[in-house]
């Protein structure tokens, strides 16, 4: 199982820890954890390259692309920020959209807190490394020691590969030239499709996605660039918090670092 993640189609894809087999313990587990972490780190490189390229195509400098990967370090939010800016959105709208997409990392932090037992400055570092991949790799382990190892090893490996790949992608796109002639304007929404598909489990999710897409198109003529996406997010936030109803299980979802 490559990287120990989900179906292995995407790094971090569909990593529902509740259904996982217990990790084979303990003989040589540290090397296994490190090998898995490196595998996941390498796999995220593909995202990193495309993120760097799309960021530059959307008008960011290579330095800004790398700064996002180092400071924001959560993939779907980075893609979203770049997408909103590329569509002419405001800085505030782009930042707010990215932040809304990053809220799920808070849930990972909650579930990891009792596992990691970190204090002081280390806690600030652990928060930064709290992403889909590190959470998925840690929460699947039965043994707390292995889980801590998996968290740190995966977080550090993904951070290293993600940033190096972002730089490579950004410099590559800089050298390539006209993004529209290369079809990079279609690459950005296709990247969102690839991030979205593994999240769709069942008709409810598909309906939710179709409704959100339709609402975004209705809002497009009415609001300045970038704000339709944020508007859809705000509607979902209000409806989701106000509606009573059934519990939706938390999920560790694809891709989105």
């Amino acid at each position: 199982m490559r990287g120990g993640l989900g179906d292995g189609t995407y790094p971090g894809a569909v990593a529902d820890r509740g259904e996982r087999q217990p990790a084979p313990a303990p003989a040589g587990w540290t090397s296994g954890v490190v090998r898995d972490a490196l595998g996941v780190g390498l796999a995220t490189g593909a995202y990193g390259v495309s993120f760097g390229a799309l960021a530059v195509a959307a008008g960011l400098s290579a330095g800004q692309a790398v700064a996002l990967s180092a400071l924001m370090f959560t993939g779907a939010s980075q893609f979203a920020l770049v997408g909103v800016l590329g569509a002419g959105g405001s800085a505030l709208g782009a930042a707010a959209t990215a932040t809304l997409l990053g809220t799920r990392n808070g849930l990972y932090g909650l579930r990891l807190a009792s596992l990691l037992h970190v204090r002081g400055p280390l806690r600030l570092l652990a928060a930064h490394l709290t992403i889909d991949e590190s959470a998925a790799m840690a929460l699947g382990r039965r043994d707390p020691g292995t889980a801590r190892w998996a968290f740190w090893a995966t977080g550090v490996a993904v951070f290293a590969f993600w940033n190096a790949a972002t730089l490579a992608g950004a410099l590559g796109a800089d050298a390539l030239g006209d993004p529209t002639a290369l079809g990079l304007d279609a690459a950005a929404p296709a990247a969102f499709v690839a991030l979205l598909l593994p999240l769709l489990r069942g008709r409810g999710d598909v309906g939710l996605a179709l409704g959100a897409g339709a609402l975004a198109l209705v809002l497009t003529p009415l609001l300045p660039g970038g704000l339709p996406v944020l508007g859809v997010g705000a509607v979902a936030l209000v409806v989701g918090l106000c509606l009573p109803g059934r519990r939706r299980p938390p999920r560790l979802e694809a891709s989105a670092r």
């Binding site: 979203a80 969102f192 979205l196 999240l199 975004a216 003529p221 009415l222 996406v229 519990r247």
Partner: peptide, 29 residues
Amino acid sequence: PRVQRVTGALPVVLLAALVATQTVGDGRA
């Protein structure tokens, strides 16, 4: 449960909105 529901649904909703606007949106057109 409400917070979990919202944080679970937000990525689906936002990514779908991004797909739609980035595929056929051009400014306000």
